[in-house]
């Protein structure tokens, strides 16, 4: 039941099918091996997510292709979120696109986020962990999670609005 969600999470973190496959496997093997150490203080799924996130970040660090893999960096407050796209969406993308097309568009949008924003967004808004659970899994403070989440949401909103907005004069239909 959890394997699909862990695989999706691993793909979002690593941006790679091959790495996600390894992360999935390592996560379940480690969970099986260390089942005794699951103390029940958190939900079992949150415990699995913590293992998967650690495995995923290790993969990213090993690849060293991305210089922004550290979740310890402190991007919050350095720059104001940029808002360029202010337009209503053209109907409902869920109705306009097939699930497959939509998945490809969303994956493309999310892959361009910095890992430190992407991971927070995926845990909060895709895997639906609470702010506190996300902070616990990532060893971040609650304000740091909130700050990164806002940046991630606004950046994704920009990208999706660029794809889904009404075109031409309709772009100002909300005014």
């Amino acid at each position: 039941m959890y394997e699909r969600k862990i695989y999706r999470l691993a793909k979002h973190i690593t941006n790679s099918d091959e790495d996600a496959e390894d992360v999935l496997q390592e996560t379940f093997l480690k969970a099986y091996e260390h089942l005794d150490s699951f103390l029940g203080h958190s939900r079992f799924y949150t415990w699995l997510v913590r293992i998967a996130v650690n495995e995923g970040l290790m993969k990213l660090r090993k690849r060293k292709t991305d210089r922004t893999v550290s979740l310890d960096e402190t991007p919050e407050g350095l720059e104001e979120p940029v808002i360029r796209e202010i337009a209503v969406w053209d109907g409902s993308p869920e109705k306009k696109y097939s699930q497959q097309e939509l998945r490809a568009l969303l994956n493309q949008a999310i892959q361009n986020l910095k890992p430190s924003f992407r991971t927070v967004f995926v845990l909060r808004d895709v895997e639906e962990l609470s702010t506190e659970e996300t902070a616990e899994v990532l060893n971040l403070s609650v304000p740091a999670v909130k700050s990164r989440l806002l940046r991630a949401r606004l950046e994704l909103r920009e990208r999706l609005t660029a794809m889904f907005k009404k075109k031409g004069d309709d772009v100002f239909a909300y005014l």
């Binding site: 695989y7 999935l24 808002i83 209503v88 969406w89 808004d125 895709v126 949401r153 606004l154 909103r157």
Partner: peptide, 24 residues
């Protein structure tokens, strides 16, 4: 402007939440 930012942010979150994980 703030209304449209709120509305499109809400839709951004909803669209991600609405996607089911694919079968392995």
């Amino acid at each position: 402007n703030c209304w449209v930012i709120f509305d499109t942010s809400k839709k951004t979150i909803q669209i991600f939440k609405g996607l089911e994980p694919q079968p392995l």
